[in-house]
Amino acid sequence: MTFALLVSLLLGQGYAPQRQGLDPLEAEKEARVMRLGKQLRCAVCQGVSIADSPASMARAQLDKVRELVAENKSDEEIYAYFIERYGEWVLLQPTTGGLNSVLWLGPVALLGVGLIIIVMQSKRRAAASAAAGAPATTPAGPAPTSDDALLAQVRADLEQ
């Protein structure tokens, strides 16, 4: 569908007129509006929150949040309003129960298992070298002053 450009652009013909939203509430409530808005997915955009989206329809949705906040509705009630319409899809941060726990715990589990493997590796190694009576890597002898040791370390880094 191609549209010929209309002459009187200032009237916005042929294009979606961009509407302005309601006036912001008082600071504390408005902060809540924005925080909730960040969590809700805009219905007509592509994966952006209604707080971030420049789309006019997103402003309408944000206005709804404003309205509900002004009525002193709780966070849960406000989320429920949107979930009733769009399902969990509308939450940019998924819930924690059920299959979603894979999403939340998966990375944590990976990190945990990885750390255990790394620590076990070094423990096993330490145990093995202790059993074999292997000398410590740092040579024994008069402890060098820290500055010298640092320089020595840098030197070792460079030489190898």
Binding site: G47, V90, L91, L92, Q93, P94, L99, N100, L103
Partner: peptide, 24 residues
């Protein structure tokens, strides 16, 4: 990777559309 693919996972396994966005 998990976050990006997860909506497809829930849709394939639970037939449920969810979003994983910036907050996550």
């Amino acid at each position: 990777l998990l976050g990006t693919l997860f909506p497809l996972v829930t849709e394939a396994l639970q037939n449920k559309k969810i979003s994983v966005g910036e907050p996550y």
